[in-house]
Design a binder for these strands. Structure first.
Lengths: 124, 124
DNA sequence: TTGACATATTCCCGTATAGGAATACAATAA
DNA sequence: TTATTGTATTCCTATACGGGAATATGTCAA
């Protein structure tokens, strides 16, 4: 199986730096038409349209027609998925790194059903 | 240019569901040897080793040798990059979605230097 | 040594890209 | 209609994947 499609989920969609840039822009400046994004990003228009297509397929942006323009705006809630996922590990960085690592090394002993006897590890 | 390497940055690395699973496991159960991950994930060992290789290259996990085992543990700080990125959009979801959309539509008018005059948009 | 176990690496394959170039489509104006 | 502007789509190519199978490497014990 190859890599998942970029449109498979939000994680894949925002893996591409340009697409993250687009998200940032829409967040900072509100909804923007394709042309505005083209100018700001300095990318060829088809490239921008393609990236927007990916973001749209995963629901991170939405379009509204406005004359001949297509105005894209951010659907930030869709980023909540990612937020919630990383947030779960928030407590693991910051301060008590050492305690975490110790616990980790401790657990490392009861690995693998073959439970290889390992020399005792100085704990706590 | 093809898609960026999965080892290009943390965003690309965690785009793969199995790798997110590995991260979750290491967070929940502390450091684990490859064998333990193989058992828990139900994946062939080479697959697990490859995923760990990617996570290791971007610094999300670290290895320590322990006998013939390789014990991997999470380096959660590396996920902070992602956390910080999405956190910036936190305020955009939640309640006042409508107000945001309104502002967006408002801004949509001063798009594109060609500043196409657009008919006023019914608001509220 | 040899053997057994744990893990990593290599090779193959079908699939999916991102970017560039060219073109198609849509909406409006004249 | 035709022309023009704004955007999307198609075709191309080089690159990179993830999984499977097979094999290599490493570490310890006998």
């Amino acid at each position: 199986m190859p890599r998942a499609k970029t449109t498979a989920d939000v994680f894949n969609a925002i893996a591409e730096p340009r697409r993250r840039q687009i998200v940032e822009l829409l967040a900072r400046r509100g909804a923007l038409a394709v042309g505005a994004l083209v100018v700001t990003l300095g990318l060829p228009q088809p490239a921008v349209s393609k990236h927007l297509g990916v973001l749209r397929k995963v629901g991170v942006v939405a379009v509204i027609k406005q004359g001949k323009q297509r105005v894209y705006n951010l659907e930030a809630e869709k980023l909540k998925t990612v937020h919630d996922w990383v947030k779960a590990f928030e407590q693991l960085w910051g301060h008590q790194l050492d305690r975490i690592k110790q616990r980790a090394e401790h657990r490392a002993r009861e690995q693998t059903e073959s439970s290889t006897p390992l020399k005792p590890r100085k704990r706590q």
